[in-house]
Computed example of a mutant assay.
Amino acid sequence: MTPAINTAKRAGIDFTVHEYTHESGAPSYGLEAAEKLDVDPSRVFKTLVVELDGKTLAVGVVPVTHQLGLKQIARAAGAKKAAMAKVDAVERATGYVLGGVSPLGQKKRLALYVDESASALESIFVSAGRRGLEIELAPQALVALGQARFAPLAV
């Protein structure tokens, strides 16, 4: 059980946990998940942490087939600029290791933005809190649980 799964359970939402064997050295955790779970990669989303205006951290969730647009997340957050957060800051704030960062159940609640493409999907896959573990849920449930909002983030 991970904090992400516990968060979904406590909220009483519908979700499914999918597990696969993570291969060390995989070039992309998200694309590996899509391949191993035999899921369209446009339904698998990665969780990325950014630093806004050099001060605060925020989370962007985008399809694994795209990159997170730094200008786009800065705009969505009302910041002037965004940069990828340092690994130690990400792990300290979220409680997760890279490749297993979930948008749910983080140690510190960070502002959460989900790419607007998710809103058209019935369900999406995001990390459940460790490499090789995904949680499938409705994108609206993710937004509600994470007190997030949809925004154009992917480039």
Rank of each mutant, 00 (worst) to 15 (best):
G146H: 03
L104H: 03
L133V: 14
T65K: 14
I135K: 00
S117T: 15
L70Q: 06
G30E: 09
L98K: 14
A77K: 07
A79Q: 04
P27A: 13
K46W: 02
K86I: 09
G69W: 09
A141Q: 08
V87N: 07
D88M: 06
E122T: 14
A11W: 00
Q140T: 08
E51S: 05
I5G: 02
M1R: 09
L112D: 04
R75F: 11
D88V: 14
L31H: 05
I5H: 08
T2L: 13
V50M: 02
G99V: 12
G105R: 03
K9W: 08
R109Q: 15
L137I: 10
L68T: 04
T56S: 13
Q106N: 11
K71F: 09
R75P: 01
G78F: 02
K108D: 10
F15N: 05
Q67R: 15
K81A: 13
V101N: 01
A89V: 05
A93N: 15
D115N: 06
K107F: 14
R10A: 15
V114S: 05
L110M: 10
T56V: 12
K108E: 12
G105T: 06
V90G: 02
G69V: 05
Q106A: 08
L68A: 02
D38G: 09
L52T: 01
R43S: 07
Y96L: 14
M1C: 09
F45G: 03
L153C: 06
A76F: 06
D115S: 04
L121H: 05
F15H: 08
T2V: 07
L153G: 00
S24L: 12
T94A: 02
G132M: 09
I73M: 14
A144Q: 12
E51P: 01
L142V: 04
V17D: 05
E23V: 12
S119P: 03
A83E: 14
D14H: 10
L112I: 09
A128D: 11
R130E: 13
H22R: 12
T2R: 00
P139F: 04
T21S: 12
G132S: 10
A128E: 09
L137R: 03
E134K: 13
L145E: 02
M1Q: 09
P152Y: 06
E136R: 06
K36R: 14
A141H: 12
L137K: 09
L145V: 13
S102A: 11
E91Q: 13
E23K: 15
L104F: 07
R109L: 15
A93Y: 11
F125Y: 14
T21W: 05
K71S: 13
D115G: 02
T47A: 06
Y29K: 03
G100C: 05
T21Y: 11
G54T: 08
Y20W: 05
I73N: 00
V50Y: 00
E134D: 06
Q106F: 01
L57Q: 00
I5T: 10
F45S: 02
E136D: 07
L145A: 04
A58T: 11
I124D: 01
N6F: 08
R43F: 12
G105M: 02
I124G: 06
M1T: 12
V61Q: 01
P27G: 04
V44N: 02
L70A: 04
L112C: 14
V155L: 15
L142S: 03
D88Y: 15
V39A: 06
V17C: 13
A11C: 08
L37R: 07
